[in-house]
């Protein structure tokens, strides 16, 4: 599959020096994104999901951050690229859709003009042609009467339509990679489903790789083929969707899965993960999750667990031997079922 690999991130670190100390927003993360595939990135707020992909897009201020590692896109390291070359990739090679469609479009410019501007930035063509292309893109994302709608301002659009317009803008230059940072968080549930369906369809039509950043495990389960679980600026587990959902290996992933409601377990209490995510300035030594982990043992507060495949079929970062993981997880599952029976 290496030929399908679009994006390869190797040991990426993003640290921000602040007056309070060094914020280790991203602290050594490695993963790949393939063409035609959706990678779901999950984690709590402050786990470094957004910063990781903002760094990849080159949207963080390089002067204010220490960035290390490699981000290979089309065989070139984006982190070593000068700003003006990076700009040619931004929007062109990779497009991004943001969380809040209400504020992501410029309120003073017409929607069609904003999409056409993206096209004209990267393609040499007459304005009318770019505008026509913008209307086409609005049509592609399912906006009715695109020619009239293109002449309207963002405030005349509903939230769902604005997000469709953002997707149209992100895909207007046929990028290889689409990064969607919590694209449905600010939308109604019904609109959410439509937008996710749209992203799924466009992934096939445009043959792009998709990164879907979310804290909603339900969304990831519905649309992602691969899942990356992040915690305190690190990846703690990466695997196919079925592996991560059916056979999770990291205690944090267990906690996440137990904290979401299941339709078949009506009436049972959700189990939250005890404690709070750590401060990214004072990350706990060893495994950053160990203060909240009910299964911590000898090495957890001393050694940072390597992010490797310990025999479970996909890489994860936890010191527990694989047999123990399997035993503990089946016990937790059994406990969950008995609680359900008791209720």
């Amino acid at each position: 599959m290496p030929s399908d690999c679009l994006l390869e991130v190797k040991d990426l670190k993003v640290h921000f020096p602040t007056d309070d100390g060094l914020v280790k927003a991203v602290d050594g993360i490695s993963f790949t994104v393939d063409r035609g595939q959706t990678l779901g990135v999950v984690g709590e707020s402050g786990s470094g999901k957004s910063v990781t992909f903002m760094t990849i897009m080159g949207l963080i201020n390089r002067k204010k951050a220490h960035v290390e590692g490699e981000v290979l896109f089309g065989g070139r390291d984006l982190l070593k690229m000068p700003e003006d070359e990076l700009r040619k990739i931004r929007g062109n090679g990779m497009g991004m859709v943001f969380q809040d469609p209400m504020t992501s479009l410029h309120p003073y410019y017409k929607v069609g003009t904003q999409i056409a501007e993206a096209i004209l930035t990267h393609r040499d063509m007459p304005k009318e042609e770019a505008h026509k292309k913008a209307c086409e893109m609005l049509d592609v994302v399912g906006i009715p009467q695109p020619a009239e709608r293109a002449k309207q301002y963002p405030h005349e659009y509903s939230g769902g339509m604005r997000q469709r317009a953002m997707i149209a803008m992100a895909l207007s230059l046929n990028p290889d990679l689409l990064i969607a940072d919590e694209p449905t968080t600010a939308l109604d549930v019904t609109v959410q489903a439509q937008i996710l369906e749209l992203i799924g369809r466009l992934k096939e039509d445009f043959n792009v790789g998709v990164v879907l950043i979310t804290h909603d495990l339900g969304v990831v389960h519905d649309v992602a083929q691969r899942v990356m679980v992040m915690y305190a600026g690190r990846a703690v587990e990466i695997g196919s969707r079925d592996e991560v959902f059916n056979n999770p290996l990291h205690p944090y992933a267990w906690g996440l899965l137990e904290s979401i409601p299941h339709v078949d377990q009506k009436g049972t209490r959700l189990v939250p993960i005890e404690g709070l995510p750590p401060s990214l300035i004072f990350v706990p030594p060893g495994c950053p999750f160990h203060p909240r982990c009910p299964h911590r043992f000898e090495p957890c507060d001393k050694e940072i667990p390597a992010f490797i495949d310990r025999g479970g079929g996909h890489p994860e970062a936890c010191h527990l031997p694989i047999e123990d993981k399997r035993r503990i997880y089946s016990e937790r599952e059994a406990g969950r079922r008995s609680r359900k029976a008791a209720s």
Binding site: K88, G91, G95, F98, H106, T121, M166
Partner: peptide, 13 residues
Amino acid sequence: EDYIRTARAKGLS
């Protein structure tokens, strides 16, 4: 503002 981030994400100078 978010729309400035969008403008940068488009690849504008």
